[in-house]
């Protein structure tokens, strides 16, 4: 996803006028095909979310907000994000620091291992947690002995969300940390700064946009995660139902109005994520120009 950062440069270069000398009909045909394809696969489905949600006007849409299950799903989704995002931010920072600031054999392997949750199907991730913490899982009996319930309860949903979003912060921060180098940190150290001072005053300002980008991606994925959470939650209405699970449940019950109302909230989250991403990319590209 780092490559996205270049998309603004793409436009800048085009404005500079590096157009190919092609017949106009080729250009129009290619743009037409691309936009038609995007329309069918991307734009129509995206617009459809909003049209379906407000099909019967804003009244029925807002009526959903008096549904206790709906409100509970929103609260649970926000609660999980409030817990998982800080944890994975701290982990991502630590992992990125450890990987970029130390020389050790097998570094590339560690980076690949951190990426593992992206390669695994969310259902397999959920399955692993059930085999570990479930009643017949490896730790199940001992957890039952001390009366701790993880599967089909909030802890498993937190662990599953954290598993899925583990790599986001680290992979955004690693390249920025590499680029920033250690010179400033070493200078601060020579001048007598303490480790935490170096982190707050030197390292963090250098990596803040990359870090923020990673945090935003983590948040979007945590709030939208479906597969892994679905496996471990048991989908108990008003207890372990997040917003994406609510969408599926409402769809299965043929309550499409409710399903689309919840979808609008999640789609707005996606739009906010994309806008923030654009702003952050512009910020970093401006910084590049200044340098």
């Amino acid at each position: 996803m780092r490559s996205n950062a270049l998309s603004s440069d793409v436009i800048a270069q085009n404005k500079a006028g590096s157009q190919t000398k092609e017949a106009p009909w080729v250009k129009i045909a290619l743009i037409g095909i691309a936009i038609t394809y995007l329309g069918l696969v991307l734009f129509l489905p995206a617009i459809n979310v909003f049209i379906q949600a407000f099909r019967n006007g804003v009244g029925p849409f807002f009526a959903n907000f008096s549904d206790a299950a709906f409100i509970n799903a929103i609260q649970l989704t926000v609660l999980i994000a409030l817990i998982v995002v800080p944890i994975n931010t701290v982990f991502g920072l630590c992992a990125a620091w450890a990987i970029t600031r130390h020389k050790f054999p097998g570094r590339a392997l560690v980076v690949s291992i951190i990426d593992l949750p992206f390669a695994v199907s969310p259902v397999v991730a959920g399955l692993m947690l059930i085999l570990l913490y479930g009643r017949s899982g490896w730790l199940g009996p001992s957890l039952e002995a001390i009366n701790v319930r993880i599967i089909f309860a909030l802890p498993a949903m937190i662990i599953a969300s954290a598993f899925i979003t583990m790599p986001f912060v680290a992979r955004e921060v690693i390249p920025v940390l590499e680029e920033a180098g250690t010179d400033q940190e070493e200078a601060a150290k020579t001048l007598g700064a303490k480790d935490w001072q170096i982190f707050w005053r030197v390292t963090l300002p250098n990596i803040r946009w990359g870090l923020l980008y990673g945090v935003i991606l983590t948040n979007a994925r945590v709030m939208g995660e479906f597969g892994a959470v679905s496996v471990v939650s048991g989908n108990i209405i008003r207890k372990t139902q997040t917003l994406p699970l609510y969408v599926e449940e409402a769809y299965k019950q043929y309550e499409s109005q409710a399903a689309f109302a919840a979808s609008v909230l999640l789609a707005c989250l996606a739009l906010v994520t994309l806008v923030l991403k654009e702003i952050l990319e512009r910020k970093t590209s401006i910084k590049d120009v200044e340098e």
Partner: peptide, 13 residues
């Protein structure tokens, strides 16, 4: 910018 929508939109939606 919209190309990234599938990354940001929850899969259930």
């Amino acid at each position: 910018a919209a190309i990234d929508l599938p990354f940001a939109l929850p899969t259930a939606v």
